[in-house]
Design a protein around this nucleic acid. Structure first.
Length: 280
DNA sequence: CCGGAGGCCTGATGGC
DNA sequence: TGCCATCAGGCCTCCG
């Protein structure tokens, strides 16, 4: 499932493939919902515009168009993006035809992914929280974003997954960041002490940057797993400490990793390295 | 305002 | 081996 590091990797790959500078000739989608509800409108709004550049916000891929307009793409669970000579491939749900005679294809077995055209990024930016890899992402802003000092009982894991607070973290990197900082996923975010906030802040940056350096996490080999636009796999699954390692020995203490459900999500952690009760 | 549940989807998985 | 039922999961909407 593409999270911040995977989205970053996809953008870098598409830039390398020369996508910026291409002009959109037309657009196609299997069903209107994939492109915002109206294929004709989508096609009309993107056709003839140039893709001036690519950028990321949270888990969104943004195509900056000229004249001014944007295409925002969210891959959700099983989405992939790649360039191909034709959009007539299995599981391709929508595609932009380019003047290079290639198609930018949105592949997605689950049909959750979306590709929409907007006039600007106001709506998107209004919905999304802090960018965890930005210079401005301080320990203090993290503490405020996750509600430290309030009396909310909400588990820290739920806070990390809340895109309105911090943007770009999904199930994999949330579990990894909590392991790295030694915090139990169910621990109330509001009750984190300064030392825990500091560790969490560092851990978030560490696991996301490691994911980027490794070109993303490609667990498993199925149709629904992450792969780069060129079809290759990322390497971060080799560096994952707890995610989907239920029953396997903890890399720190050797005791088995446990799986529980937090915020309706499968959650992996080490009960010994991430104790629930803090001994001050 | 907040959190939980339902819905969107279908490949992957596990039980018999 | 094959056939089900269930699961997974990001995010939006609805509801209490």
């Amino acid at each position: 499932m593409p999270e911040l590091p995977e989205v970053h990797t996809i953008i870098a790959s598409l830039e390398k493939a020369g996508l910026p500078g291409s002009r959109i000739v037309s657009a196609w989608s299997e069903r209107p919902n994939t492109v915002g509800g109206d294929l004709e409108a989508f096609r009309e709004r993107v056709s003839g515009r140039q893709i001036a550049g690519l950028r990321r916000r949270g888990k969104y891929i943004i195509l900056e168009l000229l004249p001014e307009r944007v295409v925002i793409i969210h891959l959700r669970m099983s989405g992939r993006l790649f360039l191909a000579d034709t959009p007539n491939e299995a599981y391709v749900r929508a595609a932009l035809q380019l003047d290079s005679d290639q198609w930018l294809c949105l592949y997605d077995p689950r049909r959750f992914a979306r590709m929409e055209c907007h006039d600007d990024l106001d709506d998107l930016f209004g919905r999304l929280g802090l960018e965890p890899l930005d210079d401005g992402f301080s320990e203090n802003l993290l503490a405020i974003a996750i509600g430290v000092g309030t009396n909310s009982p909400t588990p820290i894991k739920a806070r990390l997954l809340d895109q309105r607070r911090i943007a770009g973290i999904g199930n994999i990197y949330a579990d990894e960041a909590l392991f790295d900082s030694g915090i139990h996923p169910s621990f109330p975010a509001s009750k984190l002490n300064p030392d825990q906030v500091q560790k969490l802040h560092a851990a978030i940056r560490t696991v996301l940057q490691r994911g980027i350096n490794n070109l993303g996490t490609s667990l498993g080999h199925g149709k629904t797993n992450f792969s780069l636009p060129d079809g290759s796999r990322g390497g971060n699954q080799e560096d994952v400490r707890v995610f989907q390692r239920t029953g396997l020995p903890c890399v720190r203490c050797g005791r088995p990793i446990q799986r529980i459900v937090v915020a309706q999500r499968g959650t992996h952690f080490c009960p010994d390295c991430q104790p629930l009760l803090e001994s001050e």
